[in-house]
Nucleic acid binder design. Structure first.
Length: 260
DNA sequence: ATGCCTTCCTACGGAAGA
């Protein structure tokens, strides 16, 4: 089973790129972030035509997350992260697909730091930690995947010294990510490629992609039940080179659940 | 040192992204 995460940076403007990539890689489950689309403009029909059913949590102009499944209907289990009823951002959606619980998240960027946006990021991270601990306690096959807006270590940044004070790399958020992983989650890419420089995002400007001046901020975390099923993990760099593409690349893993 | 690009919107400039 192939499961991917992709910050599309606008699902409607990016639909040709998204469909081309899904045609090429044929992922079974896709978690999308930054839809930048209200619910009523989500391209359900086009995705159905490509063979995918979906659940989504949209918002006008910003944010927005969705889960797609090929030849299956995702069973919505949660829309919105618990812990703050006043949070109006569409940043979390969760569904069950083939007996696996899939949480799709778009963690706040947090810049400028320090400031109100950085405080919101840290609070959101705390809520995610609390909820992730509940998922671990449930002892079910689960994944928490998406755009975490965190580079976990120096290995995940093309120029760590330039990013020290950035909201994506400050010690507080790196610790928050490390503490989350320490609950028992496995960072799929890093687990299979412990020493390799791997990026998932490159800025649009200054030929960042051509220079491979990137960041690893899109992550797939596997619960203890799922981790032993992992067989591969890779960044799909091809789509990042296409015209009118996202500044992120899809990240895809393969898992082989035991036959029952 | 820097959003140098790109997206979105009752658009034509501002906000946001990382």
């Amino acid at each position: 089973m192939k499961l991917a995460t992709y910050n599309v940076n606008g699902i409607n403007g990016r639909l040709p790129v998204l469909l081309r990539w899904m045609e090429e890689d044929a992922p079974d489950i896709v978690c999308l972030q930054e839809l930048k689309s209200p619910d009523e403009r989500f391209p359900r029909r086009e995705l159905q035509h490509a063979g995918y059913e979906a659940v989504w949590h949209g918002q006008k102009s910003w944010n927005g997350v969705a889960i797609l499944a090929r030849g299956a209907t995702p069973i919505l289990t949660r829309r919105g992260l618990p812990g703050d009823p006043d949070d109006s951002h569409s940043r979390y959606i969760e569904a069950a697909v083939d007996g696996i619980l899939v949480g799709c998240l778009y963690l706040p960027n947090g810049n400028p730091a320090p400031g109100a946006k950085f405080d919101y990021k840290l609070r959101w991270f705390q809520r995610l930690q609390a909820y992730a601990a509940e998922l671990i306690a449930l002892d079910v096959p689960a994944l928490l995947v998406g755009d975490y807006n965190v580079m976990p270590t120096d290995l995940d940044v093309y120029a760590p010294e330039r990013w020290r004070d950035d909201a994506l790399f400050r010690p507080e958020v790196r610790k928050a990510y490390a503490d989350l992983v320490a609950q028992g989650w496995t960072d799929a890419i890093r687990h299979l490629h412990p020493t390799k420089r791997i990026y998932t995002f490159w800025k649009y400007w200054r030929n960042s992609f051509e220079r491979d001046a990137g960041l690893r901020i899109d992550h797939l975390l596997l619960s203890p039940t799922v981790a032993p099923w992992l067989t591969s993990a890779s960044v799909r760099r091809g789509p990042r080179s296409w015209d009118h593409t996202s500044d992120h690349a899809p990240v895809m893993i393969e898992i082989e659940p035991p036959a029952d």
